[in-house]
Computed example of a mutant assay.
Amino acid sequence: MEKVSNENGTFNSSFKYDVQNRVTNFTAFNSKLNFDISYDDSKRSKTINSSFLGQIQIFYDASGNITSAKTQYGDFSFQYDGEVIKQITVESNVSQIVSGSKTTIFRFEFLGRNVKKVFLNKGSQLQNFLIFEGVDYDNNKTIYSKEAKEYFLIANIIGYISSNSEIDFSVISDNNVLATNIYNFKGTGYFANQKYNYKYNTNGYPVSLQYSLQPSGATVIYNYSYICQ
């Protein structure tokens, strides 16, 4: 993907790549969010310098799976079941919306390579609490690159831990999500019961996305363009 625009054609975000087709720069919200990525292949690591979250360091194993990440908000460790994430443990440095423990564990269930469910474990107060369901996916290729998926996953988890903001775990799935349920662990019901509609190009990539914001019902439309069609 190269650019994202709204229904009026107004620029929203863009991506730049290196010769290995890895993202080196990403901007969003009309360039208000910007990050640059540098790679150290010998150390199996990358460094993301973000205008929003500061510096994020990500480390990999020989298979290319993330083993850990270090941020100014806390440290992440990853466990896998084959090629999919089984668990993410976060030792947070920020104020917790659930007191008593700075350790937060997210446990994942996948259907194929798409996120089906995510459960939250937090101290003794919350154990295996369902916070996300990927209800349905298409069979087409995902919108985002590997590097963008990793950034959004880490950034969203930081927001969730520190401010209970909405988090959509489907971003790391192989296919495009068609419906999600996102739950509020404070017991007030859904954050979102969201449905998405796509149009695709001949190679199976989405060229547009339309959905209605909950609970306002306002329609959101995004258009996607690619370097290689």
Rank of each mutant, 00 (worst) to 15 (best):
I37K: 01
S38A: 14
D40I: 07
D41W: 12
R44H: 12
K46D: 05
T47P: 09
I48M: 09
I48T: 08
S51T: 05
L53M: 02
L53Q: 04
G54W: 03
I56Y: 01
Q57F: 09
Q57E: 13
F59E: 02
D61P: 00
S63I: 08
N65H: 10
I66R: 11
I66H: 04
T71E: 02
Y73H: 11
Y73T: 09
G74T: 00
D75T: 00
S77V: 14
Y80E: 01
D81E: 10
E83F: 15
V84D: 08
V84M: 11
V84G: 08
I85D: 02
K86M: 05
K86E: 01
Q87H: 05
Q87D: 06
T89I: 12
T89S: 07
V90W: 07
V90T: 07
E91F: 11
S92N: 10
S95D: 12
S95W: 04
I97Y: 08
G100D: 04
K102R: 10
I105G: 06
F106I: 02
F106S: 03
R107D: 15
R113K: 14
V115L: 07
V115W: 04
V115Y: 02
K116Y: 11
K116D: 14
V118F: 01
V118N: 00
G123S: 04
G123A: 03
G123Q: 00
S124Q: 10
S124T: 14
Q125F: 15
Q125D: 12
L126T: 05
Q127Y: 09
Q127E: 13
F129R: 10
L130F: 02
D136K: 14
D138F: 05
D138E: 08
N139W: 15
N140R: 14
K141A: 15
T142P: 14
T142W: 14
